[in-house]
Design a protein around this nucleic acid. Structure first.
Lengths: 126, 126
DNA sequence: AATATATTTGCAACCAAGTTGCATTAACGA
DNA sequence: TCGTTAATGCAACTTGGTTGCAAATATATT
């Protein structure tokens, strides 16, 4: 385990997640933080926060990496069975606090389930 | 719609999917077909077959693109609600012919659901 | 407060998946 | 067989993400 230091870059990223509820793509985050820190630093801090259980990552459309605040995740074990939702109109991505039930398979063990739902969000429904 | 010609490259790729039931990553396919055709051609033929409803694509770990034979898909409308399974041990990826039920959300419309399950396959369970 | 030491950061170079433009080749109908 | 047009190869490019290493910075110790 790496020792953690409360650096400036870390607090910037932390505060971004604290003030926002929707998920953030790494690409957007790197863009937003251009000027504040290097993209390598962004990637490394996100990785660290994920290991600590503060945020969790998942794949959006085209395999882009997204991160979102953890609500029920603890360090080491992420409670990953909630789906992620991506709005096809505005591009917003968010966690849905719903449990999707995955059936049991006789001849397989399922360890994780990544579920990406796409459609229209509340704002774009009108 | 593009006119379709039965070319050599096309039949090679078609026969690969006919003879195999598991899904194929584009990367593996490009590697396997090195010598037969260019990677650009592979990408283009896969795209075409997907548009025709012969195969369907989805994202695996790290956002890698995979393709699998369609069983219940028709041109234009893919019946996409079956999950894909990736074995964490041998790397095999396959379609599971099971329907995962997605709940309805009051304030959202869900159009598609991409579900990637990871675990151990039959062969790797022992 | 100054110093030592270990972690973070920036930078530049790199890697891999996937895309594009364009000239060449090959299907196929006439 | 020839002409048209789609399919292909190639090389260059784009983009998301990673790596190695030197420079900077946080923290403990004195």
């Amino acid at each position: 385990m790496s020792i953690k230091r409360k650096t400036k870059s870390l607090s910037i990223i932390l505060s971004i997640f604290e003030n926002r509820d929707a998920a953030l793509s790494v690409v957007d985050l790197v863009e937003e933080l251009k000027g504040d820190m290097n993209k390598t630093t962004v990637y490394r801090i996100l990785e660290r926060l994920e290991n600590e259980g503060t945020i969790h990552s998942f794949s959006g459309t085209n395999g882009l990496k997204w991160y979102a605040k953890c609500h029920q995740c603890s360090s080491g074990h992420h409670n990953d069975v909630h789906p992620h939702f991506e709005c096809k109109d505005c591009g917003k991505v968010e966690c849905l606090e719903v449990n999707i039930s995955i059936p049991n398979f006789e001849n397989r063990n399922i360890y994780t389930a990544d579920i990406l739902l796409k459609g229209q969000c509340t704002d774009c429904l009108s």
